[in-house]
Design a protein around this nucleic acid. Sequence first.
DNA 1: TATGAATGAGAGTTCATTCAT
DNA 2: CATGAATGAACTCTCATTCAT
Lengths: 217, 217, 217, 217
Amino acid sequence: MEQAKKTTPQAQRREREREYRYRTILSAAETLFAAKGFRKTSVEEIADQSEVSVGTVYFYFKDKEELLIHLFDESLYQLRSILGKEFERADSPVKGMEKAGHAFFDEFCTHYSKKALILFRESPGHGKRMEARRKNMSELISKDLSQAIDRLRKDAGCKFRSKNSSSIYAMCILGVYEKVAYHFLTEPDDPDRAKEIALDAVDFIIGGIKDITGPAA
Amino acid sequence: MEQAKKTTPQAQRREREREYRYRTILSAAETLFAAKGFRKTSVEEIADQSEVSVGTVYFYFKDKEELLIHLFDESLYQLRSILGKEFERADSPVKGMEKAGHAFFDEFCTHYSKKALILFRESPGHGKRMEARRKNMSELISKDLSQAIDRLRKDAGCKFRSKNSSSIYAMCILGVYEKVAYHFLTEPDDPDRAKEIALDAVDFIIGGIKDITGPAA
Amino acid sequence: MEQAKKTTPQAQRREREREYRYRTILSAAETLFAAKGFRKTSVEEIADQSEVSVGTVYFYFKDKEELLIHLFDESLYQLRSILGKEFERADSPVKGMEKAGHAFFDEFCTHYSKKALILFRESPGHGKRMEARRKNMSELISKDLSQAIDRLRKDAGCKFRSKNSSSIYAMCILGVYEKVAYHFLTEPDDPDRAKEIALDAVDFIIGGIKDITGPAA
Amino acid sequence: MEQAKKTTPQAQRREREREYRYRTILSAAETLFAAKGFRKTSVEEIADQSEVSVGTVYFYFKDKEELLIHLFDESLYQLRSILGKEFERADSPVKGMEKAGHAFFDEFCTHYSKKALILFRESPGHGKRMEARRKNMSELISKDLSQAIDRLRKDAGCKFRSKNSSSIYAMCILGVYEKVAYHFLTEPDDPDRAKEIALDAVDFIIGGIKDITGPAA
DNA sequence: TATGAATGAGAGTTCATTCAT
DNA sequence: CATGAATGAACTCTCATTCAT
């Protein structure tokens, strides 16, 4: 019965509106969090920007932190899509790592700068849930990267210090990504220099990887 | 005559007590900022912890941010001392980079963990003064590192993509430091694993550097 | 359609309640400012007196000073209405001045004593906004009075020392008003004496004016 | 014994120093109160300005309000001296009133502007003691003026509405003084205009008086 | 006497969250 | 569902006054 109602035209419209509102609020929050940071953005501002009332924000999202978490997850998903795509396309793991690096700077940080800011600028010091999410994101990306590194290692036939090594290297790579991305997003360098930075940073990462996996033999 | 008065025993004791209070407050703030973060620590808590009144905190420090800035500067100084010492001691730039890396994890993150937390966990989004300090710290450490990298490059006789490259590599290294340090300080790994992480991270950095600076082959 | 919604009974009631709260807070502030002065009245007291929370006060008024400014403006409006009415009614400018003087003491200082206190007792030394308001009030009333004086002068066909004279005389009259009003409001004289004071003060003003505008005799 | 000690050279020097400190503090307070107002001046500022410690200020003066009271009394004394001198010198009561008026603007407001500011700008809303002092000052000057007015009246042989009338007129005159003085001290008019204002204001006062005491016959 | 560090009550303001309508 | 007024705890900062030395 309940489900039947859902296919009613009115219900459909409602559903659409619901979805629309949800997206609008999220989008407003994204813009504001990216621009001013989570703490300096008030729920009222988000409501104003999305042209709904404060109460409506709370109807769609449990609390302010939930907004951040959603955005964080979305951003993470976007990032992983971009990186994953590059790895898949590439002929070799090394090539994949390189392509992914460039995609990170040229695509993610450029076309999804708000997402990048939320991912890399929103610091610790929020609630527990967010803290957990943060850790989760590191782990997920680390896992992606360490799988790639493992493939690399196997290809090279080398041996790591321990079974954790690849995840540690992944952490290192993530560190480079974060730091350089933060610089990218924070200081408005001219495009040429930005390109240079991206190239050098990827070089650094690939260098680190190659050396380790490398001519160990 | 006037100056003679300043060396009066009473005056000396006063000066000592003044110094002591100052240190006590700073230390309480350090502990609390490291544990809960700047924003979640109230001035009242700092006062309680240092067993003085709120007013006294404000007698010694202009405002809450000033406390953070002092601690930040102190931490930065400590870190640079530790790293600098290692670079000086080392026989070669590469060795220096390696030693410095290990000192960072084994000495700074271990024995000065509160300072490390303040340096690497306190996020952006504070006042303007703090924001400036933050940028300053990145620049200072970057400069230290890029000088070392430049020496390395000269030894290896290689050429970088551009004159900025060394500072970009420095940024990358700092990124690795920060990320791994954050992991260190946040997740209480067992000491063995910690050791392993440090070793691998330094390997990664050295690898990145060596590859870039040298067609070592 | 949208506008129709605004006339909904519920919306009307809300609007009424909103207005009511607003007036209640303003009225509480008026009473307290008149009784204890702006500085010695805390926002919490205003909230208590109006039976709302502190937050609600800030919902309706940007800050404490805004309350004072609103009250000040209201008081000024009330005063000018009373004086203006008398000037209009009167047969001659002199009569107008006289009537206005009596209305000031008998009506404004008596029935709007809180407003009078806010107008004449709240000292300088507040924020910039208030300071500007204060000056504005002096200028407005001065202008009203000096226009009346100018008409008087024209009737008498006399010449003043300079084109500023009438505004200076206006300032003098305002000075008398303020001083005597302050006395009125501060010392609880018996009504007979109050009447006497008002009569004498108006005599003084009229005397000053008449002498200046004309050896009419 | 005690008294004998007082004539000791050392005791004399101490007494001198004591007196000097006292004056220095009072003078610093005068400058600051005149410049920033009582409330916006902190005891620490007064101490700094007079080059003593906060404790010393409290040794010489019971509390901050006492400083204001002393200054207020001093200012009042100065003002009465100036006005009194003019009344005595003058040939007739009317002349005296006129001279006193000019002396008020040209001498008191000009050469003792800090005192004038303290007398006329420091508003109500301070402690009870100060409130009392304020009233006292009004009464004293009123008495001075009403005595002069009474003499005037006798000369003219006219009759007032009541025995209080002269004191009411005095209040009016004081009101004019205060208002115009405040304008003088607050708005930096050019000297010519200042002169004009003073002349007109005195005219107004004399006019008010003359009319009342005047052609009653 | 003189010092100045210490106090701590109190002020204004913010804002995430709730809930009656 | 949407609204937005209401809440009130929490926070930073000020400053007159005290008192051990």
